[in-house]
Design a protein around this nucleic acid. Structure first.
Lengths: 157, 157
DNA sequence: CGGGATCCTTAAAGATACTG
DNA sequence: CAGTATCTTTAAGGATCCCG
């Protein structure tokens, strides 16, 4: 990564490339002054970041601990997620040169500060879940009626 | 400090499937009662949802209008995003049976209520962008030093 | 104008195996 | 225990064409 100069994703399809760049890691300074939101949304929405942040809310955790707390995550994904968070300065990684090795992950100040907005979103989710599900249900039923797809309405693959 | 994790995401390893299902559309009854957060994170983080919500903050917009406001989006992605939002009851779609056709998209009450937390996140992003970038820079420089990967630091694919 | 249906490319997420 | 290094799968996202 060269800190030398800014390179906007592209004059035209900026958002597409934005996300693209976000995934890859060269967030450089894509936001020409007004789209840092997109960065954080990518940060928050993508992957397991949120869950990890939440899981670290209670204090430092070890790798295996986290993995156990987040059933579906593969060690690879957990590693990648933690790396990303560490890179962004949201999580601090502490290695104890013991044997067997021990590594603690903890939220940094920055990470802690992210908790609030994230939890706010979580709260919103909890509070409005019913409405959302109702809406979905309504929408799906309507769609079904419109779609003469002989398939069962409750198809469970 | 043993806060004992608040509540495990899912009984089994269903996070993977959760996201999977979220993408596909059959959110139906995946959330058996404790992880609506994940749903909303997926909702917020994935795709162009956030930007669209923000763009609709100013009032109803037409399809083409939105497309113009969000340079990088393809009409397909915009459609999918709007559909998703509509499905979740966050956006209302109004069709005027005129010719040429005209369709307005507007935030519903629910959609409006999502604005706050989303914008909170955006604010956080803006306020902490500098720190994040600094952290990234630091991390990348360290990684570079550690990586004997002779390749150029700014290798473009 | 506002999409729906298709095809194609890329890369994110998962599984596995190997190392310090 | 805590990773890293592949290999594979899956599907998100983009480009096009077409229809109402």
């Amino acid at each position: 990564m060269e800190p030398s100069n800014t390179h906007v994703p592209t004059p035209d399809g900026s958002m597409a490339d934005l996300r693209d760049h976000l995934r890859r890691g060269d967030h450089a300074r894509i936001s020409e002054g007004c789209k840092p939101s997109a960065e954080i949304m990518a940060l928050v929405g993508e992957k397991w970041t949120v869950i990890v942040v939440v899981m670290l809310s209670g204090g430092p955790r070890r790798f295996k601990e986290l993995q156990r707390m987040i059933p579906g995550v593969s060690q690879r994904m957990l590693t990648l997620t933690l790396r990303g968070l560490e890179r962004d300065g949201l999580v601090a990684r502490t290695v104890f040169p013991t044997v067997p090795p021990r590594v603690d992950y903890a939220l940094t100040e920055l990470g802690e500060s992210l908790r609030a907005p994230v939890l706010a979103l979580g709260t919103w989710a909890r509070e409005n879940r019913a409405q959302i599900e109702a809406a979905r249900d309504r929408y799906d039923r309507a769609a079904e009626r419109a779609a003469p797809r002989a398939a069962g309405p409750d198809e469970v693959r």
